[in-house]
């Protein structure tokens, strides 16, 4: 057992998968540069020493290297693509949506695209274009799987499952969760370290997880908001409000088997999302819950999300933009009052 942050556990997971399977390789910008960074957030740091032929550093050409990764996947390789900042996915969207996601279907099952895409997201003092929560844009694309990792244990287990999956899997990672110490520590970083067992383990791609049990309200969230929801639940407990906190984790497909019984039990739902409220993941979850468990709801589903504005730079404005534990607790109190 060792204590690790997300960046370290992802690095170990990648190394172990590359060790296990010679078709696994990494491709992306600013990886495998001697004296460099190991990608924008140190995740692949040093792997070039162990796997010199399987760490492909690319030009700054997101459309191109996503296409390259997909082409290699079609030929039986298992690429792990590093996109630096999630916002750059818009450049690569044609390859992801039109090719990676559809190739299996439009070939009638003749091909497969075992592709892993690692996507750092979240508002972190970088203004509007290195900040967006990109998961909303991909959950509605048939053929893709989307997961969000909020601690080091999940990050390692989910990356391993994703590499072994025969479909394109997008792993969303939050920049404030990579590590709260060391060279890449960010202002406002939250401790997402876990005890990592020595033995091999995986975490399924399609399962939500109950982080805290409670009977009064179900709080659904992921990534950084999963941590803020836990903080809010602790505060609420002081007021004798018992919140059940579920880390949704699998954003496509949504795991209603885990979420449903909680909604049936509490009858109250708050969904917390970093990112503009309109058209977000929380809208999809709310609609899905209404269709499946509407008769158990004792109050309307409430969303706590960012306002419908681009991510601002000023720390004052950014803090006002991103939901926090205080806003989550207030929403829960309002819902239950």
């Amino acid at each position: 057992m060792k204590r690790q942050g997300i960046a370290e556990s992802l690095r170990d997971a990648i190394a172990e998968e590359m060790e296990r399977d010679s078709t696994v390789f990494c491709i992306g910008e600013d990886i495998a540069v001697p004296g460099g960074w190991g990608g924008a957030f140190t995740v692949t740091l040093g792997l070039e020493d162990r796997f010199p032929d399987r760490m492909i550093n690319t030009p700054i050409a997101e459309l191109g290297f996503f296409g390259v990764a997909i082409g290699a996947a079609l030929m039986g390789m298992r690429p792990i693509v590093d996109v630096q900042y999630g916002d750059f996915l818009f450049l690569a969207s044609d390859q992801i949506v039109n090719n990676a996601a559809k190739m299996r279907y439009m070939s009638g099952g003749d091909c497969k695209v075992p592709l892993v895409v690692r996507v750092p997201v979240g508002a972190t003092g970088r203004g509007s274009q290195h900040a967006q929560n990109m998961e909303r844009y991909f959950i509605g694309v048939p053929g893709l799987k989307a997961v969000a990792v909020s601690n080091a244990y999940d990050a390692k287990g989910i990356l391993k499952s994703a590499v072994r999956d025969d479909n394109p899997v997008m792993i969303f990672e939050h920049k404030l969760l990579y590590g709260s110490k060391g060279a890449r520590a960010e202002s406002g970083a939250v401790d997402a370290t876990s005890d990592i067992p020595e033995e091999e383990f995986t975490v399924p791609l399609d399962k939500a997880v109950i982080r805290r049990e409670g009977s009064d309200v179900t709080i659904l969230s992921w990534l950084l908001m999963a941590h803020f929801s836990m903080f809010a639940a602790k505060t609420l407990a002081g007021d004798s409000i018992h919140a059940e906190v579920i880390d949704v984790r699998s954003l496509s497909p949504i795991d209603y088997e885990t979420i449903g019984p909680s909604v049936q039990k509490t009858g109250h739902v708050v969904i917390v999302e970093e990112g503009p409220k309109t058209g977000g993941v929380s809208a999809e979850i709310a609609a899905g819950l209404l269709e499946r468990f509407g008769e158990y709801l004792q109050a309307p589903i409430l969303r706590v999300a960012s306002p419908d504005v681009p991510v601002p730079f000023s720390p004052v404005l950014e803090n006002a933009y991103r939901p926090d534990s205080r806003r989550i607790a207030e929403a829960v109190r309002g819902l239950l009052s």
Binding site: F65, I70, G71, N98, C111
Partner: peptide, 25 residues
């Protein structure tokens, strides 16, 4: 033959990636 790519130029990066796989293997 991989499925035809109907987005203009969409097959060009794919071809590079297919060739990268051949080269790596």
């Amino acid at each position: 033959m991989i499925p035809g790519i109907a987005i203009v130029a969409g097959g060009i990066p794919l071809a590079a990636g297919m060739a990268l796989a051949f080269k790596m293997r």
